[in-house]
Design a protein around this nucleic acid. Structure first.
Lengths: 209, 209, 209, 209
DNA sequence: GATGAATGAGGATTCATTCAT
DNA sequence: CATGAATGAATCCTCATTCAT
């Protein structure tokens, strides 16, 4: 039956469908950000999206499912933003700063999403946890790797890589959380933020800053 | 009537009351840590405390109230642990390291409490938020002050104090969260952790490390 | 407009319409049998029929309406199968056995339908109940009549006609329900079943078996 | 804690608890009978029982759980009512009639319960199905056994035992269903019913009635 | 006619809080 | 003081039915 639908109409239908999904995701993003996962009800989300209860379940299987979608989206953004820095290429510090800048961009391009994910996403749902575990695993690996490489190549001081990696990740998280919660007027420019994060988190580790 | 109760009895009664309260707080600490605020039910808490449903409400007005109690306790511990470092006194870096060490001690002496507070305390309740705002305000003030002083006295590099303060706080939070969640066997000694945090967060900022 | 449609086209249209209806009825038969009335969803039925949600409602006003259709169909089959036995004609017992055989044939020719109707059709819908009341009324009348006649003509023993009629009907229902649920391999031949039913239900009542 | 409750109070508490449970069971019996399992809502049941939504779940885990309770109760009644008839003891037919009478008593002592169970209990829940399978298994076994024995001892005619057992069970079910649905005024006395059922179902099978 | 996206009333279940004993 | 049975608002989710295309 579905296959008989004229191509033009099918394409338009699918587009509309994904627009509608997007509508829900955006509403969910906003609502989860405002109320937190638990306090946010499906009613809140559908009201925000301007759709009916039934429609919500037409696009998502459950409350958890939208949340998972948000997590996946965030993980995707961050993963795309990060590029492994080869310490043998020239100007590794600059490459790192670019990574920092891109991550900051993700946070500021998707402030609600970022807050939702950073604030309280652990322990709500097994799939969500798995996704986040993979993201954090990746981040740790990247940062630890960079620190080990930096040490080997004489670029950075010797530190407890595992702890410092965790600390760095936490530094970023808190800065995002803090500055995204602030009214825009009081937030520094993204470039300033990226620069400051780099300055604090990385410069201090360099042997010759 | 009760107020005329012979002193001995009143004292004993009050002591028993505060022991019972403590019992509940400790149970709540453990349960909130295990399940998170929302998933933890009053039933879980009273079972863990070995008291009746009614008794719980004899000691606390609501679920939120116990949670607030935990927050207050944590805020108290941290506040006590921190001492303003006068940059004019000798060895300011050592004073700072001592502060770091004391904060680490709070986290490891009260792992459940620390995790509860750090994990998901924001946005649950206005009073809780207020308490945490004051704590974070204090922390920011202290750290920013130290950075400004450090800069003035030529001890530390010039950085964006506000951002770096936030980053530092986040670094500590993440490290605590991460290492308290780990099985004890895999966690480094408190001293190593304190040292690593200092090494990463402060040393890098010093002009002459 | 439509009414002025050239005859050929109208006939073909109506034929197509009734083919489509039949398609739905058959699907509903199967689905109701598999899941039961309540657990069977419109989605199940339209999927089984390979039609769209909208189309279903083009042919039937509601879920109840298809169900009613099934009931009507069954009632029709049974009514057609039964012929009043005139006790004055020769070999009345043989006539009765033929009736039994025809009813058994209906059950085995339409196993899904029969199970649906026998299993849980009461109390779902007023119209359905009315239809079934009429069917059962008819059956009772026939059987009671036969028993009264049988008694008068000295063919059968004197029994409480009303109760025995009910019992007979129940015996048939249970045997159908039971044997239609069985895998075909384990079911006796229709003739055996008809014979056994007759043997049990009627022979025992005969004065001279 | 519970164990410290003075004995008198505990006993009274447990008694009250089981009275309350009974209240719910009786309400459920009535409601399920009136509306059928699916159409009956928890709201209907708690309204009928005059208790709150929460209280219902204090006594039963789910809607299914009360239903299962009903099934179990019915199965218990029937099982208790039936006693295996040893064909070697004197007057086996009389023993059988007593069994019939006791089963009829169960049905008329618990008309709502009986109708609920007989009408539509299959396929709602795995546990319920299991319980009923066991009951029907038992019934079949008993009846088939009796028929085999009856044949061996020359008491009854040779019939297809399996089919006749099913037919007998169906006869009983239909008679109960029918007569319990009737206004009391139109229903024959229990003794008449038992006698008629015996007359129809068993006498006819006897070699020398 | 045919389609399937959209609707929303209705249902089962949970859990913080109260209060009579 | 202590208890735990009782409460009911709130939540997630389903599914028969409608209607614009």
């Amino acid at each position: 039956m579905k296959l008989v639908m004229p191509d033009g109409r099918r394409v338009r239908a699918e587009q509309k469908r994904s627009e509608r999904r997007e509508l829900i995701v955006l509403a969910a993003e906003r609502i989860f950000r405002q109320h937190g996962y638990h306090a946010a009800s499906i009613t809140d989300i559908i009201d925000a999206a301007g759709i009916s209860r039934g429609s919500f379940y037409l696009y998502f299987d459950s409350k958890d499912a939208v949340f998972l979608q948000l997590i996946e989206r965030f993980v995707g953004f961050i993963t795309e933003a990060l590029q492994v820095v080869d310490p043998k290429l020239p100007e590794p510090a600059k490459r790192i700063l670019e990574n920092v800048q891109r991550v900051v961009d993700v946070a500021f391009d998707h402030p609600d999403l970022t807050m939702v994910v950073l604030r309280e996403s652990r322990g709500l749902n097994a799939q969500v946890d798995a996704k986040l575990d993979r993201l954090y695993g990746l981040l740790h690996e990247m940062v630890e790797g960079a620190l080990v490489n930096g040490d080997k190549s004489g670029l950075t001081r010797k530190v407890n890589e595992a702890v410092v990696a965790t600390a760095l990740i936490g530094a970023f998280k808190e800065v995002f959380l803090w500055h995204l919660a602030l009214p825009v007027a009081e937030t520094p420019e993204r470039e300033v933020l990226a620069e400051s994060l780099f300055e604090f988190g990385i410069r201090g580790l360099l042997v010759s800053p």
